[in-house]
Every structure is written in C-alpha cells, then in structure tokens.
Simulated scan of single mutants.
Amino acid sequence: MLASGLASQAHALCRTAATTPADFGSISSILAATTVQSTSTPNAGLHCTGSLLSLLTPTDHFYATVSSTTSGLVGPTGDVLTYNIYATNSTAAAYLINRGSRYDFARNNIIDLLGLLADATSKTIPIYFGTITGNNVAAGVYSETLSILWEWNYCAGYNNQGTCIGRDDSSGTVTLTVSMTVNNDCTVSAPNISFGDAPAVVAFSTVNQSISISCTRGSPYTVGLDAGQNANAGRRRMVSGSNFLSYDIFKSAGTTVWGSVGSARRSSSDAEVNPGNGFGSGRSQVFNYNAKVYTDQPAPAAGSYLDNVILDIGF
C-alpha cells in the first residue's frame, strides 16, 4: 500500500500544445535593415500542467529542435528576412537556438527561472526572436512556419528516501508561425538652396543641386515639392517682412517646374542616378534640379528672404 501511494506521485506533467504566434509587428524597411527588431511568443508549444517535484539533474532534459523549410521570414517577392532564435530574452551566445540542433532548456537555469520547478501553476515555455541587421527587403508581409520538436525526460517525483519513483519521458512536435509586416520607407538628403547675395534680381546665379533618396527595395515612387509658404500666381516666393522675391525650382537642368501634383512630380524612374524602383538601404537615387530667381520682377527692398518647401514621397 505504501509503495502504491508513493508511485502515484510520478505522473506525466508536460505535454505539447498549440502555440501562440510571434509577430514583429509593422516595421519600416529602413528599420528592418538597420535596427534589430525583437518579439517573442509566450507559448512555444510545451505545456507543463503541474509541479516538477525536483531540481533538475544532469540526466534531466528539455530539448527543443527548431527546423523549417526556409531560412527566415519569406516575403511576397521571395525576399528572406533573417532572424535569430533565443531561449530567453538575452541575446548571449549561451541562449542562441541554432536551427536543426537540439537546445536543452534544462541547462543554464532556464527551466528554474521560468518557475516550472516546485510550482503547481500551469506554465508554458516562451521563445524569443531578434532580427539580424542588413535585411534589405521589399515591402510586404513576411512569415515563416517553424517546426519545434520537444523532447523531455526528467524525474517527475521522489519518495521520502530521495529515490526517483517515475520519469516523465515523452516528445511531441508543434508548429509556430513568426511574422512581420515591412512598410515602405525612405531616407532623404536634401540640401538647402542658397542664392547668396546680389544687388539686383538679374544678378542672382542659378543654383544647380541634387536630392538623394533611398527607398524600399523594389518599390516605385514619386517625389513632389510643394509650392512653399508664400506662392502666388503660380510662382514660389521668398519673403522678407512684407516684401517678396519670386523664384522657382525646376526639374533637372530644364525649365519645367518641379511641383507636387500629377505630372509635376518626379518618378523614381526619372532619377538621373540609379533610375527605376527603389534599391533599399545603402543605394541612393539622385534627382538633379536647378533653382532660379525670376528676372522679370521688380527689385524688392534689400533684406534676407526665406521660404520653406516641403518634399514628399508617394508610393
């Protein structure tokens, strides 16, 4: 009777269960390329429904083997966004889970820190994810389905003499979906326009400059320049007090005003350097322009004239 009572303490405490998907959320393509993004799942498929009655010994194991048919999150154009998998929210090498290799959650005090030892509360095991910088990918929804083989073998209970009276030894495979939405984004380098000083409107020199833009790989876009803060009669104007100085910004080296609506905008395929769709991080497209002070206007009063023009990018 005593032996039967003690044996009843050794019962299966763990099982595999449906996972909770992990989602990096909605991230700009620039951040996806330059900054590590993090996410996690609170439930990677191993569910322990009662107390693990002992401290884990070197012969106890909680193995996870992660595998997939792809090497990362796959997007609509076939681009792959790579990331690392970790057993905790630390990115130290000891917690890195390599695909195709067993990782033992019984080591490095992971199971202990999760509170599965000597805790009768139902628990699941989380897994953490961090992207790898340098992911130069197109916009869209990225996802990957991971297969996780869980294998566990530990002493589920001891008698009063400290002898193991039963081991929980089993395994199971679950699937886990990881996803991220990559949004179009750009970086822009647009220097100020300075006409310098001149005694008359006809004496101002033409300014020839360029705007450099780096946008999401594979995305076509247009670039617009608005009319500024003081436009009148179809011309941009700088202001000094109550006085105005008319000027404009023209596409390339021509005489067509670069505007913000319809055909007045510039297409990414119209860039002087690297025309076409966006190339993503690290490769800019260059748009040349020239700016002139209109010479058919009366000379305004002396002063410092200023205007602000908004550049916008549309996808």
Rank of each mutant, 00 (worst) to 15 (best):
A120G: 15
N308Q: 12
N160Y: 14
G78A: 03
L31Y: 07
S212V: 08
A17M: 06
S101Y: 13
I85W: 06
K251F: 10
A93W: 07
N43V: 13
S51L: 05
C155R: 10
G25E: 06
A7F: 02
S122K: 08
T256I: 14
S260P: 00
A10M: 04
I127A: 05
C186Y: 02
T187D: 03
S170V: 08
N243L: 05
L146T: 14
M238Q: 02
T35H: 01
T256P: 05
T57N: 03
T34W: 00
F279Q: 09
S240E: 03
G75V: 10
D312K: 06
A271N: 01
P220Y: 03
V202H: 00
F315P: 12
G228N: 08
S267T: 12
D60R: 00
N159M: 03
M180F: 02
A118M: 15
A302L: 09
A301G: 15
G224R: 09
S40K: 12
P191H: 07
I27N: 00
A94T: 15
F62Y: 00
R15I: 15
S269M: 07
T124D: 02
S268Q: 06
A44H: 06
T206E: 04
S242T: 15
G259K: 02
V223M: 00
G278T: 04
T181A: 02
A190W: 11
T131S: 12
S122L: 06
I165N: 02
I165P: 05
F287V: 11
G259Q: 05
L146C: 10
C215A: 10
A94S: 12
P76C: 01
T222H: 08
A253Q: 06
F195G: 09
S214K: 15
T59W: 05
V273L: 02
R266M: 06
E272Y: 13
G45W: 08
A120T: 15
D79S: 03
S8W: 02
R236L: 06
I111N: 07
N84Y: 14
G75P: 08
L2Q: 13
